[in-house]
Write a protein that binds this DNA or RNA. Structure first.
Lengths: 191, 191
DNA sequence: CGTCTAATTAGATATACTTCTAATTTCAAG
DNA sequence: CTTGAAATTAGAAGTATATCTAATTAGACG
């Protein structure tokens, strides 16, 4: 497990190979084409492709003497999903350790917010906790959002503004939805 | 974007650092402890931790002269999610190339399934195609699910079971909903 | 203020990896 | 069978990075 993961990281931990993957994500390329685009000699490109092939990330199709290389997106996705799963497995252990302590200070026995933390770091923890109420893909009216938030704290307007500022919720035409975690921020940005 | 991704891969593309991350996923460690566990000298461990800290993957807490290092699981998750998103962005381009060919073999002009593919790989392609009918966040009764599926193939029960088995649909108390793509599988698992 | 401990920094050495040129293989076409 | 194009393999040279020892910093404590 650790070994495949290590090899996966190693395979992508070089600029040339990462660029090759980026190019192959768009269409098939021959060794010559890649060498020209990356400003490398053909043997060098062959070498990098061999490493990517060893990880199952690249497949080859021969046509005469030229060999067309393609990205195996299924393999790439499967491996990167494994990375995410490994990190998610780690999260509850470490996060619950630190964040649970912070949350315990601000959430009472009824699962309501005692106060909105003033410190940036702690406020981010609380906002992430609030986000557990909102499902990905679901659309919410402002009234619904307020309803949910009021079940945690009277000042739903501030919380709602903070959630949008932290890029956890997005709004358009009075409709709100949850943004992917990757876009969440620990500080508010923008207007 | 490519640069952060490259640095992320570089940071984890070494056995010592990957093992450090694995250890920190469980609890805090001091430099000495890590050096002992990894059979390395302390300066070496310091060096690796500096690289992980530069990526925001590790945080430090001082207690007297010892410094406790912890994994920032939020940062790790955010980065690995970005990896997955980048691969998913590549998928439709390449996948449409390959998957469209497979789909063409099983879907007729009326957009109906000629048969349920026997091969695992092809069945996964067809199931992903079926999932286009279901919206994230929407709740469906079993009757609704069956109705949608019957518009594609008479054997809606098998398809429904496959979709659940592949973690594309989830069910609870007779209500179905679409799971995030991150959880989809190419094979059925579990009961 | 000295002393002890934990950690980091500096600098040297060793190892791993990238890239190149040159030689070899593979395949198609006369 | 020979020739030419595309790619790979072999091996050398160069670059990057891991690891070490020795020296230095930072904090705790008498």
């Amino acid at each position: 497990m650790t070994e495949t993961l290590l090899d996966f990281f190693k395979a992508l931990a070089h600029e040339s190979r990462l660029r090759i993957v980026g190019l192959l994500a768009q269409r098939e390329y021959s060794v010559q084409e890649l060498a020209a685009l990356l400003d490398l000699k053909e043997p060098t490109v062959s070498h990098h492709l061999a490493i990517l092939k060893a990880q199952g990330l690249v497949t080859v199709r021969a046509e005469g003497t030229t060999r067309w290389h393609a990205l195996d997106t299924a393999a790439l996705e499967s491996l990167s999903r494994r990375v995410l799963e490994a990190t998610e497995a780690a999260a509850p252990l470490a996060a619950d350790e630190n964040e649970a302590r912070i949350l315990a200070g601000f959430v009472d026995a009824d699962e309501r917010l005692k106060e909105i933390p003033a410190s940036r770091r702690k406020r981010a923890v609380v906002l992430r906790w609030l986000m557990r109420m909102f499902e990905p893909g679901q659309r919410y009216t402002e009234a619904e959002i307020n309803g949910y938030l009021k079940s945690r704290h009277w000042d739903c307007a501030t919380l709602r503004r903070e959630l949008v500022g932290h890029r956890m919720l997005a709004r358009d035409a009075g409709i709100y939805w949850r943004l992917p975690k990757a876009q969440w921020r620990d500080e508010t940005i923008g207007p």
